[in-house]
């Protein structure tokens, strides 16, 4: 997918996604919106912040609501407390499900995700968040479909909705999955032994 076709919301979340990547170097994400300004300090999958838990949630909510990440640079030293990778995942989920998404925004994001090439869904231990993650079951279903079919076509999945509310739920789930790195491009088929075994199991 070319840089030109990136949705502005995804553009805003891309730095957060990369910063949350365990192998990433980390970043200080500065942003400003109509509601105010803030910063997120993220390093190797962890939030480092001088604020409290609530501040991070608010900041993430703003990130989700406004595509306004202004800059990213390596985090400063001397942070007062840390959140674990598991905490970071929980906060991303809470923020995404707490953010306001207008119908227009849902439609715009749905179009963007629908235009994506086939994806694969990565398995991550998301069950600890099941109590406050409404998308947990659909995520596990998407993962199963990804394994059984070798890929998931989001245009088909997003098109199969009964209401605007359902479309909003699917969009939120895809945003969570994007930020947490659970969506990946479908790998190019390679003649590996395990690839052949997986194809054989699909056909059993």
């Amino acid at each position: 997918m070319s840089e030109k076709s990136i949705h502005p919301d995804i553009e805003a979340l891309r730095a957060l996604r990369r910063a949350l990547d365990e192998e990433g170097e980390g970043a200080l994400l500065r942003f400003s919106t109509a509601d105010g300004a803030g910063e997120l300090n993220v390093r190797r999958g962890r939030f480092l912040t001088r604020g409290g838990d609530a501040d991070v949630v608010v900041a993430l909510g703003m990130l989700a609501a406004e595509p306004a990440v202004a800059s990213a640079r390596p985090p400063a030293e001397g942070d007062e407390w840390k959140l674990t990778r598991e905490d970071a995942r929980a906060l991303v989920i809470r923020a995404m499900y707490g953010a306001t998404l207008s119908d227009e925004r849902v439609l715009s994001l749905s179009r963007f995700f629908s235009a994506m090439p086939p994806i694969r869904v990565r398995l991550a231990p998301m069950y600890p968040y099941a109590d406050f993650f409404p998308g947990f079951t659909p995520y596990m279903r998407l993962h199963a479909d990804s394994l059984l079919q070798g890929e998931v076509r989001l245009a088909s999945w997003l098109g199969d909705v009964a209401s605007a509310g359902a479309a909003g739920e699917k969009t939120r789930l895809l945003l969570v999955m994007y930020v947490l790195g659970l969506i990946q491009p479908r790998p190019k088929p390679r003649p590996s032994i395990f690839g052949r075994l997986m194809n054989a199991i699909r056909g059993v």
């Binding site: 997918m1 491009p185 395990f194 997986m198 699909r202």
Partner: peptide
Amino acid sequence: RKEDSKVLALSLFELILKGQEELEESDFF
């Protein structure tokens, strides 16, 4: 359920492949 059995086995192979770093970890954008 056969489908559940297949998903569990495929998930294990996904793990094995990840361990072997055979899967591409490239980003979309």
